[in-house]
């Protein structure tokens, strides 16, 4: 009995099923963070990914508000992602509704965070510098941003455009003209095609608009962060580092929100992976009709990628929050030791 079951157990199929679980990404993220915490404890490394650096502790006070805004924004993106999941699944019934906002929620949360940050920077810009600092170079939106982070955000925007166009072109309308279906036809038959909910134009267009708005917000905040004047010459180096931290936070939140949205889109595209067997009552044919999409392999790959993108997004957001938020309660163990030794 056991061996029969073992024979019929298909690892890839079961792992594929597991990857469709919406809570897989948060669970994997928690496991990874626990593993990372244990690794840090045993290696006792300092200045590793996500740790608060000396620069962060000594950055000028006026940057504190902006760091806090970004840190809270990173947490807000995660919280709103789960709130939307609970509201959609357990509070309201969105049957037969094109709930595109499920993919746009992280984008909107990130966009609002950057909007608040932009207002903060703009309000500070009106204050004249205490003593002007002469710049030797032109400052642009690229001046402080991490190159990898900016390039990553660009790649994600391109991936979103490609996904929207490809999925939109493959989608079909319902009787109300909403492009929300993918149709899978059985070859050489007159059977009506099977229809699955899909990431068609009805989802893709509003989401890509949100991606565009978020990309513009990221560009505007990076630009405002770079172009504002330095306060005093003595602090220019520290301010430069603080701006680097802010720019890194901007790119982390933008890319994480895009990763979450793209992960969601990939999950819906995974609906069309197939192949699907169809049997018809009264049909003398003994074998089920096999229906498959031309790009089923791509859909299956998207299904595999979705949780990975989401894990990467959660990690980015948590690391950004840890780096940007002040740790008043987190006392350094070494402080106690030093005090005890001195006394």
């Amino acid at each position: 009995m056991f061996w029969d079951r073992l024979d019929s157990f298909n690892i890839m199929e079961n792992l594929g099923m597991l990857s469709t679980m919406p809570l897989l990404a948060p669970i994997l993220t928690v496991l990874l963070l626990v593993a990372y915490g244990l690794f840090r404890r045993f290696s006792r490394g300092k200045g590793q990914l996500g740790s608060r650096t000396d620069h962060a502790l000594t950055s000028p006070a006026e940057y504190g508000f902006e760091r806090r805004t970004l840190g809270i924004g990173a947490i807000a993106v995660i919280v709103l992602y789960f709130v939307e999941f609970v509201v959609r699944g357990y509070v309201f019934n969105f049957y037969n509704t094109v709930d595109w906002w499920r993919y746009a929620t992280p984008l909107i949360a990130a966009g609002l965070t950057l909007g608040v940050l932009l207002l903060q920077i703009a309000s500070r810009k009106t204050v004249a510098p205490a003593r002007p600092v002469v710049a030797t170079a032109r400052r642009t939106w690229l001046s402080f941003g991490p190159r990898a982070g900016i390039a990553g955000t660009g790649v994600l925007v391109a991936a979103f455009v490609a996904t929207t166009l490809a999925a939109g072109a493959a989608s079909s309308p319902d009787d109300r003209g909403r492009y929300i279906y993918i149709e899978l036809a059985a070859a050489n038959t007159t059977i009506d095609p099977l229809r699955f909910w899909f990431y068609g134009w009805a989802y893709g267009i509003p989401v890509i608009i949100c991606v565009g708005v978020l990309a513009i917000m990221a560009w505007l905040t990076l630009r405002a962060n770079a172009l504002r004047p330095f306060r005093v010459p003595e602090n220019a180096g520290t301010e430069r580092r603080a701006r680097g931290e802010i720019a890194a936070g901007i790119t982390s939140i933008s890319s994480a929100a895009m990763l979450l949205a793209l992960g969601g889109a990939f999950r819906l595209i995974n609906n069309a992976r197939g192949p699907w067997g169809l049997t018809i009552d009264g049909d003398p044919r003994s074998e089920p009709y096999e229906m498959t999409w031309h790009y089923a392999n791509l859909a299956a790959a998207a299904g595999w990628l979705a949780p990975l993108l989401e894990v990467a997004a959660f990690m980015l957001l948590l690391i950004a929050a840890r780096r940007l938020l002040p740790a008043h309660q987190r006392r350094q163990p070494s402080e106690n030791t030093v005090t005890a030794e001195v006394v």
């Binding site: 510098p129 032109r138 400052r139 172009l227 004047p229």
Partner: peptide, 13 residues
């Protein structure tokens, strides 16, 4: 290249 006129104006208030 020197910074743009706009940036310099901004930096000096």
């Amino acid at each position: 290249r020197l910074p743009t006129v706009r940036q310099t104006a901004n930096d000096f208030g």
